[in-house]
């Protein structure tokens, strides 16, 4: 049975900043949903399904999503759901929901804050509670072990990683929704000490606060979702080949491939993970990577993946024939989503 055509009708984000202290959950959600609906030319009453992604441990308390719905004007009661995942998975749920024919507009958002200070510890707690979490291994150390495998297998060099960081931060500085980053040339960065050898500070994501919102609509124009799929890999880092991402490759195939894609927004917090994804997705030199600066320049938990899909939609709006948005979840690119958007 043919699936219904779903378009990205609207997209909005709060600027990713080191600190959005003034906003509570509901206020973040109120502002981005209002902006995204305005971008789509729709009203709250047009929305048939609402779905969000957030994480209680990131926000420090249970049911943080429940407080956030105070930002929606959920009266009369609304059809609503939530995933304890990046907002990209909320978008997937909404895409599936729109296939049923009874509703045509879905509102999708994610929110998160790094400024509460716990993101690294939250990543440790997502690890296997029997053999990994008790070792207290931090996410930077995990990423560094993956990066070393990549470098020692000849896939990249520390210098190439520094160039990725320079490009991302330069692009981020052109993006009003990314925080300002000090720019330096790659050679200067390579003189910095390691944080987790072989990764230096510039290889790590800039952790931010933020929220983003995508309005999906059946028909009505705007970038069309040509294919969307997500696949999960084995959890244990020692159980899979860390120099590639089998799940990203498989998800792209399930989403119908990257044909015609000229822009890719990759959810690669660490520079080394961009190298892995480009290879796993078979992206050529003709594909522009992360024109927004990517999740490396602005890594808001539970938001960065959804924002990649939104940014890919913007790329299509701005003339790209097709663009790819990627989202990831879990340690070392364990779970990957691909959303390919194209111009109508």
């Amino acid at each position: 049975m043919a699936l219904r055509d779903v378009h990205v009708a609207g997209f909005a984000q709060l600027p990713n900043r080191m600190n959005l202290d003034d906003y509570d959950e509901a206020e973040m959600v109120q502002e981005i949903t209002a902006k995204a609906l305005a971008d789509a030319g729709l009203e709250r009453s047009d929305v048939g399904f609402t779905c969000s992604g957030s994480n209680d441990y990131v926000m420090g308390r249970p049911f943080s999503f429940a407080m956030a719905i105070d930002g929606l004007g959920a009266w009369p009661p609304i059809r609503e759901s939530h995933v304890e995942m990046d907002g990209a998975w909320a978008l997937y749920e909404a895409y599936v929901r729109l296939q049923h024919g009874d509703v045509d507009v879905a509102l999708v958002y994610g929110f998160g804050k790094s400024s509460l200070g716990s993101v690294d510890a939250v990543h440790t707690l997502e690890l296997d509670p029997y053999s990994l979490a008790p070792l207290g291994v931090d996410p930077h150390a995990m990423a560094a072990m993956q990066a070393r495998l990549l470098i020692e297998s000849g896939e990249t060099t520390e210098a190439k990683l520094a160039h990725i960081s320079c490009r991302s931060r330069r692009d981020g500085n052109k993006n009003p929704n990314a925080p300002h980053a000090d720019e330096a040339d790659a050679d200067a960065l390579l003189a910095d000490p390691y944080v987790r050898e072989p990764l230096r500070a510039h290889d790590l994501p800039v952790r931010t606060d933020g929220a983003s919102c995508v309005v999906l609509r059946v028909g009505g124009g705007g970038p069309r979702i040509r294919g969307i799929a997500h696949i999960i890999d084995a959890h244990q880092p020692g159980f899979r080949d860390l120099t590639t991402s089998a799940s990203a490759t498989k998800a792209l195939a399930a989403a119908g491939g990257a044909g015609g894609v000229t822009v890719a927004e990759l959810h690669a917090p660490y520079t080394s993970q961009e190298v892995i994804l480009i290879k796993a997705l078979g992206l050529g030199e003709d594909v522009t990577i992360n024109p927004s600066g990517g999740a490396h320049a602005a890594c808001t938990p539970m938001v960065a993946g959804l924002t990649r899909i939104g940014e890919a939609a913007l790329a299509v709006r701005n003339g790209a024939p097709a663009a790819l948005g990627h989202a990831t979840s879990g340690p070392l690119l364990q779970h990957n989503m691909i959303c390919v958007l194209e111009a109508e």
Binding site: N55, D56, Y57, V122, L125, P129, I232, H235, S329
Partner: peptide, 17 residues
């Protein structure tokens, strides 16, 4: 329900296998 009940964040990750 909330991850805080078991103290494992996003347990779908370690339970995938």
């Amino acid at each position: 329900a909330p991850d805080m009940f078991e103290g494992v964040v996003q347990p779908e990750l370690f339970m995938a296998g």
